[in-house]
Nucleic acid binder design. Structure first.
Lengths: 212, 212
DNA sequence: ATTTAGTGAATGAACGTTCATTCGTCAAAC
DNA sequence: GTTTGACGAATGAACGTTCATTCACTAAAT
């Protein structure tokens, strides 16, 4: 009580965000009351409004916090030498190590983004960040000769995004989802696409509607 | 007024489901009131309860209706000769032809499934249906020699599921999403995996953490 | 004394659900 | 052909609850 518990000038925002994250993942945004969040944060409802102007502002802050983290992750990768090792690190961090609750929260954010323009915009920003990161990192690899110079980086970024979103949804809801194995498999696939085993945009070989 | 408008014995459930689908896609499940649904269905709130015992029951019925449709889609495919053509038909139907609102509604269902056990169970059923369908259709193709006999059908089904979920999320929220092109590309990729250009589970070639 | 942090009861709007009532149609009775 | 009674469908005004937000107040720190 004397030293650590002296709450003066201790910014409560991270604490509130942690509490909200917990609650939103557990019960969803709309089923979580401000009383719930306050309780989880060890304070009383009214006090939340000293730190956030509204319930909505809390999710917005939550997403913004995520965006910053992702941006940092990619920044750390940008100088990296080994492309696939970088993807592996990122993939493992976000889909294996991070608790499943994060995926559930992401579902919540998606559903919210479909109505709330502020959240939609923020999500767009996050996604742009990711896309930019992927392209940048791939361009590095291109210059180093790791992957073909004519690879369609944008198409690759889109592919990775689609796969990531699929993983998030499955991890959040499939009872028997083995993130470990799934991430491994998909990285494999991305690797194959990256080194040109499969060409994406022109759909060169294989597959036509008359037999494979 | 004389013939068609005589509303006797006209089952209002489909009409209510259509209205609810519209509303839920527009405003989300929790932001849609029973008054909204009633209004959209051209009736009054109280009357909804003659056809559904609760608001929850309406989403449940909505999902069940979807499950039936998907089951039918796969059933129609099961006898088909050309594997990829079948996938293409399904892919186009669900990700290109169907209105974007369906994807948004799916986001809503996902977020709801994370708390409501009934909905989670139903979603599990839908997914099991899809997975079974994919495996069945692929097994046919295997017997016909369209794809290698040793292909890991379960892994392929999981891949397709992940891709589908990713597509749904992107179609629902990405402003500049071109479903047409994206579906085409991904079908390409699935085709390549199917005919063994890339092997998934053992991660045979390519990609290790020491360079591609 | 003044500022800052925290309290928790109160408020008022929103919403899912209920229910007493009305409406429209049909069929039997006349 | 008209009347009557019955019944399912539809109404819409309430009810009771839940919940985001407010605010008058206290406690502590400076």
């Amino acid at each position: 009580m004397s030293l650590a518990a002296t709450h003066r000038s201790l910014d409560r925002r991270p604490q509130i965000l942690d509490a909200a994250e917990q609650c939103f993942a557990r019960a969803g945004f709309h089923r979580t009351t401000m009383q719930d969040v306050a309780g989880e944060a060890g304070m009383v409802p009214g006090n939340l409004y000293r730190y956030f102007p509204s319930k909505d502002a809390i999710i917005v802050a939550l997403i913004e916090r995520d965006r910053a983290e992702i941006a940092a992750d990619f920044a750390a990768l940008e100088g990296s030498r080994d492309l696939m090792a970088g993807f592996k690190t990122l993939g493992r961090k976000h889909f294996v190590e991070q608790p499943r609750e994060k995926s559930i929260l992401t579902l919540e954010i998606w559903s919210e983004a479909a109505r709330n323009p502020t959240i939609a915009a923020l999500m767009g920003a996050v996604q742009a960040e990711v896309r930019r990161g992927i392209v940048a990192v791939c361009r590095n690899a291109q210059r180093a000769g790791e992957i073909p110079a004519d690879a369609d980086l944008d198409a690759i970024a889109r592919l990775i995004l689609t796969l990531s979103d699929g993983l998030i949804r499955r991890r959040a809801l499939d009872r028997d989802f083995e993130s470990d194995r799934e991430v491994e498999n998909l990285l494999c696939l991305v690797g194959a696409v990256l080194c040109g085993t499969i060409s994406l945009p022109p759909c060169a070989s294989a597959v036509s509607s008359t037999g494979i």
